[in-house]
Design a protein around this nucleic acid. Structure first.
Lengths: 212, 212
DNA sequence: ATATTACTTGCTCGCAACAAGTAATTTTTA
DNA sequence: TAAAAATTACTTGTTGCGAGCAAGTAATAT
């Protein structure tokens, strides 16, 4: 049942209650992270902005770190799915192209949850945070996807078997991170972001084609 | 006068006292950031690890944000200088190559201040932080340097005048950020980092040469 | 009606931030 | 040139706020 539908009811099951408060707190946290960053976002405010008590976010998630983990996991899963959907059963250069287009559409349409997701992503850099391994996991799976797209095209004979699919995927993912960085650092400059995506596409195509 | 020399003296000028405590607190902060990340680093601990009172870091820097700003500025300036030194008066593809080599040497030699610098760099992403503009400033100057290297080679006729030097520089810097991300996410894998640097060099050369 | 689960309120601890203090160095003045 | 006054470096005292936990109340389930 959707969040909107849950809001209509005047009596909800316990499961529905937690689902609703989870959803509301998730969106409150996203707003706050986008508005004031991770350090200035407080669990107290997350609970209150969601329409509950100061203590609920603490109680539900335990720590700030765990709330952030929850967000990254939720948005990250959604996001991987969307990317795969965009690529469908394309392989090789066309798959990369579709993924880059989808990525660009995602971040330029400016949904706050993607923005918060990437802010958390970058903030997770550094030692000790529990968030780190969740991010590493998503990052790894993303790279594996890219590797698969390329490898399938090699099997297909669309690409040369001498292609270094692991290296190409690594480099591709590194470049994506770089682009996202630029986007977060200067969100206004949409044209710049578009340009970076285009360059990435042609460069990756070049890197893959070069091995022919 | 060097920090080591200042330590010898039993009487120091006021300027020397602050220079010494600044240096000690800087290095304490770097250690703490590398050891436990930015959020778990406290001003209290910075002062105490540096051998002073719990309150000095607060008193000197005001806020955590301003301490971090101080670190990024200090290390960032040093770092830009070193890069320029490595490039000397090379231009074009050779300048890029020299810069990439220097960058790789920097981060693989694993000096903690570079590591802390980049951790702060990534953590500064997001809204509202004072740190942000300092990072943006350094980032911008770095990109300008790269643009200049390319442009000089165009003037030199080493590179075609149809080269998009701004786009190439943007893309290059985005890729550097991506590489640094990978390094911080998985510092052990030195070989991977080396590889990414190599790929970046060849790809940039390709992107520049292609326009001939 | 009782039990379970969701949420709230009360509380403690630690840190940031600031104010008011003490200690070191510099300047003044005789 | 040396004590006194002023300035600058650093420390200690205090307040406020949020995290995190415990012990409550309210809603749903049995």
């Amino acid at each position: 049942m959707s969040t909107a539908a849950l809001l209509e009811k005047d009596r909800r099951t316990q499961a529905e209650r937690t689902a609703l408060s989870d959803a509301k707190m998730l969106s409150a946290a996203v707003e706050l992270i986008c508005a004031k960053g991770t350090t200035r976002t407080t669990l107290k405010e997350v609970g209150e902005l969601a329409g509950y008590s100061r203590g609920l976010a603490s109680h539900r998630f335990g720590t700030k770190d765990q709330l952030f983990t929850f967000i990254v996991r939720s948005v990250g899963e959604l996001w991987l799915k969307e990317l795969r959907l965009a690529v469908r059963d394309e392989v090789g250069v066309r798959a990369i192209g579709a993924a880059v287009d989808a990525h660009q559409a995602f971040i330029t349409q400016g949904a706050n949850n993607i923005r918060a997701f990437y802010i958390l992503w970058f903030n997770s850099i550094g030692p000790d945070q529990g968030l780190r391994e969740v991010v590493a996991n998503i990052h790894h799976r993303r790279r594996r996807d890219v590797e698969n797209w390329i490898q399938k095209a090699v099997v297909n004979k669309e690409l040369s078997s001498t292609v270094d699919y692991r290296g190409a995927a690594q480099n591709f993912c590194a470049a994506i991170i770089g682009i996202v960085y630029q986007w977060l650092a200067d969100p206004e400059n949409v044209e710049h972001i578009r340009e970076l995506h285009t360059i990435l596409k042609t460069q990756t195509a070049l890197a893959l084609g070069k091995a022919h």
